[in-house]
Design a protein around this nucleic acid. Structure first.
Lengths: 234, 234
DNA sequence: CAGGATCCTTAGCGATACTG
DNA sequence: CAGTATCGCTAAGGATCCTG
């Protein structure tokens, strides 16, 4: 049974919250920012939401034009190992209207960086860390464009370095200089402390293929962001 | 009893929602964007929140460093009619951290403009319409600076026109070219249809003093915003 | 009278089990 | 895999009552 209560306030802020203010709603939007997702993928990304609530939120968001449900369209690269038929699994994706929430959700994320950490065990989705990487990474703009393959929770992403910033896209890169496979928590730990790459790699938490230095550069771009140029004495 | 549930997600977005994601929390922040407010003022601005929930939200927001509670400090002008003692009523105000939510709340408000209106009767606070006015008004930057007195729900505000935009401050203006007294709903209706000023004034819904043309210009600045210059054929 | 605290009721939430 | 069904719990909603 979907939620039907309203703030009954004509203000735009209240009306926005009538749509995306219910519990879990904005986290569902967060999960769909980078790519459409299936129901089970959303459940895996948000392990603390119960299935009925997730179904309710998706239904409401769909009715309010924030999310659209349909067969996975011409997405990046092929997924699964099915040979020919490709029976197009159902996925949830943001509508144009839903995409309008992106700057708001990202701003909320920046504000939340200074908020206290939840008591462990805490969840951390691949989308979360990739959005964080994309938003926080700063590299030398002179850095030549490169592509990295990132595999998180068994799903492949393409991270491109371009103009000092990092772009993230779903799916396998056509050609990549390096590949890194791990889980979101380890990846987050590496963004905070890139020096742990050796240890984590030896422990089997991370698998690196290709240009290790490129991976190191990418990781350091968050904890040691590139600065435009030291002006004078500080 | 304050809420204590958490999304248990390390992502900044989820942590932000742990702080301001509870019901009514962001609307309380909205109410405090323009000026500190007393408990009873908040209740009047948010008539559909019950007093215990409002008290809970304020306590939580205070504990999380978003809101501070204390005696009304050196605010603009005197309020009430007390002669000398001025026993400083308790007010709630945003902390520096809470003020960091301002761009997020404003962006949410813009997004919500396209959201469906709630079923009447709907609330509408003075703060809401003033934030809307401030955000949506566009005047000719060549317009000379002026000050208007706006009285909404029995509280006085100062609206200054400056550089084509409107600033809103609490309290009485030192000198004003014009004054308009009405309720938030009527004011909102006038922003949408400034032509109704005559009728509403005759009906006693609005009281205007001083430069009526200035009031008209201010109202029209939302429905007929000033455009930089028509370039060529559209 | 402002500023809550206390009560009771309702409904959204959370967890688990179950089904096409 | 993608949800639905069920049920106990707890926060929200609404009214009343307390306290300086």
């Amino acid at each position: 049974m979907p939620t039907s209560r309203s703030y009954r306030d004509s203000c735009g802020i209240a009306r926005a919250l009538d749509v995306v203010g219910e519990r879990w709603a904005l986290l569902v939007v967060r999960e769909l920012l980078l790519t459409p997702q299936r129901f089970s993928e959303l459940r895996h990304a948000l392990p603390h939401v119960s299935s009925n609530v997730l179904a309710d939120r998706l239904r409401e968001l769909e009715q309010n034009g924030v999310v659209r449900r349909g067969p996975a369209a011409a997405q990046g690269s092929a997924e699964g190992s099915g040979s020919g038929s490709a029976e197009a699994p159902q996925v949830y994706e943001l509508t144009e209207r839903g995409r309008g929430l992106e700057p708001i959700v990202l701003a909320l994320g920046e504000w939340g960086i200074d908020a206290p950490q939840p008591a462990p065990p805490a969840a951390l989705s691949a989308t979360s860390v990739l959005i964080f990487l994309r938003g926080a990474a700063r590299l030398d703009p002179a850095q030549p464009p490169t592509a990295c393959r990132l595999e998180l929770d068994g799903r492949a992403w393409t991270a491109r370095v371009k103009g000092g910033r990092v772009q993230v896209q779903p799916g396998e890169p056509a050609r990549a200089q390096a590949s890194l496979r791990t889980d979101p928590h380890t990846f987050s730990a590496l963004l905070i402390d890139p020096g742990a790459l050796e240890t984590r790699s030896a422990a089997g938490d991370v698998a690196v293929v290709g240009d290790v230095e490129l991976i190191r550069t990418l990781l350091k771009a968050v904890s040691e962001p590139w600065q435009p140029e030291a002006r004078a004495a500080d």
